[in-house]
Design a protein around this nucleic acid. Structure first.
Lengths: 211, 211
DNA sequence: TCTATAGTTGGACGCATCGTCCAGATTCAT
DNA sequence: ATGAATCTGGACGATGCGTCCAACTATAGA
């Protein structure tokens, strides 16, 4: 039951807009619990028309998630492209990522809720890698190359940073803390400085750039 | 539609065991896409009996997730209770957490997939806080108190660490890398040392313990 | 203007699955 | 052995998905 986000017919731009209104619906109830009739009602697009453009409910969701991912990919790439050291670029990317989570909260949450699914929504899984993981690895590698970041394992670091920002960002959404304080700085502080009092030398031998 | 994990009738231990066989089913397909008939078939528990003990499918899942969480809470608490500095205890907790994710992968993934749901599975959301977040905050605070950890904001740090370990752990599951290498050390290295080349002094003013 | 084609829609249908119900079977304690 | 509690098969109504198709609308070309 692998689902591609590509619509069978090209979707008129008018419909694409109205379809976005259904994002909250999916986000709140999840894929299966969202009724196609509700999607039709909210968007004003007749049920028969939905099935004219999409093979099924899953594909409607896939389309929504996919375009959200495109948005994000663009913003992240833009942030990553601003010149600077790897470290500076990483910080921009992370701030952009946090901001994106904050603004697209519901959809973003759904992205990861439905993501784990074994075989379905395969495009989405790839999209996440393209939109977040790949740019992250790129700036991390840049930081290694220009010596502005302390990274021993780019892949592991990308996972850690991704998870840190993702979970922190989602938590800010779920727990609307009374304080309006933005925790972005606090989050980045941990990511950049780590929790240890000082650096361990466990892997010092692998540190071969002479700086 | 808020769902409590408490069964209406006390579940015979025999059934609880066989029910665990359904965990993979739920994990692979998600709540809604899992057929009750399948659960009945896999576990060998007749459908009518399932509905005799549980008000509905959601409650079956809630029970599974809830007992998985109980397992984890116990293991994490045990790891946290071993004497040592805050830092040492944190490291043990994180290793235990990663090990748990590795062994209970499917169920654990589902835990977070279904978690976001607005109103449902409320017990589960609380359970995650009890099983992971609270112990994390406790050892982080211990590290602050005994000076073994560099933590400015315990709450933010807990989110970051939780996310880092969660996403890294899940990724090890999803991407079965050809190398059998355990990435645990690499993950912890990033968490403890951070990505920065050296520590920023942005918040140095708040750093009031005389070390 | 007329007409052919493509795009769009309402509404009925078949089908799967949920959760309910209950009569009968089974187990267990006395 | 007998009654109570527990368990189970099977039928049922309700819901919601996806299909189908006839009819309606818009548009472009003659």
């Amino acid at each position: 039951m692998s689902v591609s986000a590509a619509a069978v017919r090209t979707l008129p731009s008018g419909l694409a807009e109205r379809l976005a209104l259904a994002a909250d619906l999916f986000a709140e109830h999840g894929l299966e619990a969202t009724r196609v009739d509700e999607v039709a009602r909210i968007t004003g697009i007749p049920r028969a028309t939905l099935y004219y453009y999409f093979p099924g409910k899953e594909h409607i969701l896939a389309h929504l998630l996919s375009s959200t991912l495109d948005d994000m990919a663009e913003r992240i790439e833009t942030a990553a492209a601003v010149p600077g050291t790897g470290r500076e670029r990483l910080e921009r990317v992370l701030r952009e990522h946090l901001a994106f989570i904050a603004s697209h909260g519901a959809t973003y949450r759904l992205l990861f809720a439905e993501l784990g699914r074994a075989a379905s929504l395969v495009d989405i899984a790839r999209g996440v890698d393209r939109a977040i993981r790949a740019p992250l690895r790129a700036v991390l590698q840049a930081g290694v190359d220009d010596g502005s970041l302390h990274v021993l394992d780019v892949h592991a670091a990308a996972s850690v940073v991704h998870g840190a920002v993702l979970v922190s960002g989602l938590e800010q959404l779920l727990a609307p803390s009374d304080r309006t304080t933005d925790r972005t700085d606090a989050i980045l502080q941990v990511v950049f400085e780590g929790l240890g009092k000082e650096r361990v030398d466990r892997r010092a031998a692998e540190d071969d750039h002479g700086h």
